[in-house]
Design a protein around this nucleic acid. Structure first.
Length: 578
RNA sequence: UGGGGCGUCGUCAAGCGGUAAGACACGGGCCUUUGGAGCCCGCAUUCCCAGGUUCGAAUCCUGGCGCCCCAGCCA
């Protein structure tokens, strides 16, 4: 993969505060449970959590919430957090994903130390425990087909029926299970099931499958196994083996908790507490891994790290900072009620962080030539420009100025609407860091009528941006000297989905924003950007925040991704005038 | 009465029997060499509804109503 070094990224950004002191932790019910447990010494003073992704896709912002929660709670109490790959289904999983997941967790700012595990590390133990269940008469081999098992399971309202194989002698179960493992039976021909209660109101307890046969190679264990354990069984036993204290998962697993508890109780082993919280939903954001995969596979986006994706890899490439994501995860809180957080909050967290850290720079996205008629031809001078008014230690840089410059097309209007205080015929504006200029006349294209050039005069007295007479100039424009400008490509991203709820309607694809990527190839940026490196973040003055693309940017041809816009009061005013 | 969970501002969310935090969004003002940032002010007499207990209820009890999840050999 292209870029992924949090190292170089860190280098040219001011050091960030460590996660622990960013903000005082907000109270939530899980923190309360942990605090209580510590007070009653339930776990001998230990706090051990785990983040258990399945390596079948990339991590997204929803996972970030879980990561921050698990690592955060442990860190607050001097505990540890395990990174454990829940890799019990070889048909869906891949090493590409495990590497991406590790990279993303690290980038977010968390460290699992030597606590890196895989459920597949425990395949041997899982097998032995299963044998124990059989020996205790708590599990049996079922010969029913998948369809038959479903049929026997009953419905939500009607109880299920017991399998005819349910009361097989222990010895026979043992023999069959050994032979399942030995590879004697084809996929789907038999399963190992827990013997619980076919009439339970909780469907999960109607003799759930423990092991299924899959003659498939596993990315960690190769072809050592042809039977693989199911999630419910593998997860609780893994937690037990690792002596997890608080096993935090999302709400949909609430119904599984009785099963989690059942396995551990029957096995008579160490028993962590499962706690469920509401997963993160964001407006305009698709959070389903399966559907995100579809976008990648169908080429709707350029990959898992496309800057429009809600994946951590995508957000990183877009220019998000790990600090802003952590701050966001802290601010949204943790509770049990289903909710949809406004994406505006995420963007706010980003802007707040970038405002403090991103150097200001001048870039003209849609250039319009401006000629200063009374400025000597061939003359060049330099101005000192503050890199970041929010950061006194940010220093200054030199910006070259000359007779012909580029300004933003939007910053000139031949027939200015009310309240427009940028450039217009006869009007005077300030060129940031430079001089005041007054528009004297314009040049238009004969055919299209489009303004192709603006002619101005400058006031030599206004050097630096002020005049002795102290006259008030409301409009300040950014600009780039034509002969010194660097050509750049700029990619403007919009929300991938036009609907607040991307899942609305029959097919989420119908809710895609028609043009969520607009590429501008004729941009002019100030020469200091020649040294911009992949991942560097800037504020293009008066525009928004941009990040040097880590995939396609090259030394002679920088490519910038729009990270997030600046607040735009003028746009708001215009909107309200309509 | 299939089982499980949840209902506090537009959106998140504190609150744990003592009289509704905070954030985002929104509206108004100040300030400004970014229409940025910053600063100030405003924004739930009321907590899904109805009863009850109590000197006192968002918090406890009872009964409704609404929303979410579950019938993979996925996780």
């Amino acid at each position: 993969m292209k870029t992924d070094k949090s190292e170089p990224e860190r280098k040219n950004l001011p050091a960030s505060e460590p996660a622990s002191v960013e903000t005082a932790p907000v109270s939530n019910f899980i923190r309360d449970i942990v605090k209580d447990d510590l007070a009653t010494n339930k776990w001998d003073g230990r706090v051990v959590t785990r983040f258990p992704p399945e390596p079948n896709g990339y991590l997204h912002i929803g996972h970030a919430k879980s990561i921050c929660l698990n690592f955060g709670i442990a860190a607050e109490h001097n505990g540890t957090t395990h990174l454990r790959f829940d890799d019990t289904n070889p048909s869906k999983e891949d090493v590409e994903y495990t590497e991406a997941i590790k990279r993303d967790v690290r980038w977010l700012g968390f460290d699992w130390g030597d606590k890196l595990f895989h459920a597949s590390d425990y395949f041997g133990k899982f097998y032995d425990f299963a044998v124990q269940l059989i020996n205790d008469g708590k599990a049996y081999v079922d010969d029913l087909s998948a369809d038959e098992i479903r049929e026997h399971r009953g419905t939500l309202k009607d109880p299920g029926r017991e399998s005819p194989h349910r009361n097989r002698p222990i010895a026979e179960n043992l023999d069959l299970f050994h032979r399942m493992r030995a590879g004697e039976f084809p996929d789907g021909s038999r399963v190992l099931r827990a013997k619980i209660d076919m009439s339970s109101g909780n469907v999960n307890l109607r003799d759930p499958v423990i092991y299924r046969i899959k003659h498939e190679a596993h990315h960690m264990t190769g072809d050592q196994w042809c039977i693989y354990p199911m999630y419910d069984y593998a997860h609780c036993v893994s937690d037990s083996i690792e002596r997890i204290t608080h096993s935090i998962c999302t709400l949909e697993f609430e119904d599984h908790r009785p099963l989690y508890d059942w396995y551990l109780d029957q096995l008579g082993v160490y028993h962590p507490q499962q706690i469920e919280f509401a997963r993160l939903n964001l407006t305009y954001t698709l959070m389903s891994k399966r559907k995100l995969l579809a976008l990648v596979e169908e080429g709707v986006v350029s990959g898992w790290d496309d800057p429009r994706m809600p994946t951590l890899a995508g957000l990183r490439r877009r220019g998000y900072t790990p600090e802003s994501i952590r701050d966001f995860c802290e601010r949204i809180g943790v509770a049990k009620r289903d909710s949809v957080v406004s994406v505006a909050l995420l963007e706010h967290c980003l802007r707040e962080d970038l405002n403090k850290r991103a150097p200001r720079v001048m870039a003209v996205l849609r250039p319009l030539r401006l000629v200063i008629d009374n400025y000597p031809e061939g003359q060049t001078e330099e101005f000192d420009a503050v890199n970041n008014p929010e950061d006194p230690s940010g220093g200054t840089r030199k910006i070259p100025f000359s007779r012909v410059i580029y300004i933003e097309r939007d910053d000139f209007n031949e027939t200015p609407p009310k309240g427009f205080f940028r450039l217009a015929p006869g009007k005077e504006v300030r060129l940031k860091h430079a001089y005041y200029v007054t528009c004297q006349n314009i040049v238009k294209d004969d055919k299209t009528g489009e303004v192709t050039e603006v002619h101005c005069t400058y006031d030599p007295e206004s050097r630096g941006g002020g005049t002795p007479d102290g006259r008030v100039i409301k409009g300040t424009l950014h600009w780039v000297s034509a002969e010194h400008a660097i050509d750049a490509e700029v990619r403007l991203y919009d929300h991938l989905f036009a609907k607040e709820d991307p899942e609305e309607g029959e097919d989420f694809r119908q809710n895609l924003t028609p043009n969520s990527l607009e590429t501008l190839t004729d941009c002019k940026v100030e020469p200091s950007l020649a040294k911009a490196a992949a991942g560097d973040r800037y504020q293009f003055l008066r525009h928004r925040y941009f990040c040097v693309d880590s995939g396609d940017s090259k030394p002679g041809h920088p490519v910038f991704n729009r990270t997030v816009s600046l607040r735009d009061t003028w746009a708001k005013v215009q909107k309200s005038q309509k």
